[in-house]
Amino acid sequence: MAEPMIECEGLTKRFGDFTAVDNVSFNVEPGAIFGFLGPNGSGKSTVIRMLCGILEPSGGTARIGGLDVVEQTDVLKESIGYMSQKFSLYDELTVEENLRFYGKLYGLRREALRKRFDELLTLTHLEPYLDRRAALLSGGWRQRLAMACALMHEPRVLFLDEPTAGIDPVARRELWDLLFEFSGRGMTLFVTTHYMDEAERCSNVGYIYLSKLIVCGVPDELKMLPEVNPPGTRRIDVTCEHVTLGLQTLRHRAGISAATVFGQSMHLLVDDAVSDERIRGYLAEAGIRDVDLRPISPSLEDVFVALTAKHGGGTE
């Protein structure tokens, strides 16, 4: 296997008494789309800032493309791009001026600047808005512009901090299409997100909870973890009428350890000892008929829920 693009080893950040990032270690392979998940305040942005060399780690090491983020920051900066949470742009500058500014900032000269500028326009479809001030762009276009700005210097690694927060579903879908395209060209992407469906699209995911990285790996492998699939249990999807009533009926029964509503159905984690017929029976007692049961595999959300519970977490 190729050398990892991003290597973190025991990365730690303390602000006074508070440990924002606690001993985090992981690797990201070149060309991967690494999804970094976790609740607000769990330390996602802090990790990104340390990797980008703008925040000094309190402990541990991190290397990007073999360059140490503390010792070789200046060289490193040439090869990374960063798109912050707020799509930080210069509002008083037009789209074109924003792009030119970032190009110049990374030392692109006339020819190279023009070439890269054209490439990114084709990719992001920003042409119609070239003369528009950034302040007047809608959320989706701002995000595209911010990404184009972060890409002007053709970074090998692109960090995106919640790139899809607050934008419409179409723009979100289109952004992911772009990310897949970059990944296909060999760029490594490091994306933080709240959305589970986005996590499912990543080639690798990490989940940070209360400053600790509690899981990291390929989504399909994570779903096979024994913590997620305790021996002697199975996950089933129950489709029926009056789902909420059904949930109340089943939630506290012996042998049913997790029950969550998903639209018109509910997902259950059930002991093998509890047969499908027994579940139908419980529901029938509550007057619910036309019950459809089928086995399912765990989602990433199930994985994170199971692992969060194991780390003494959860809001309840």
Partner: peptide
Amino acid sequence: ERGTLEQLLVSPV
């Protein structure tokens, strides 16, 4: 305040 400083610091300026 606008958050653009972070963007500048990430660059090799």
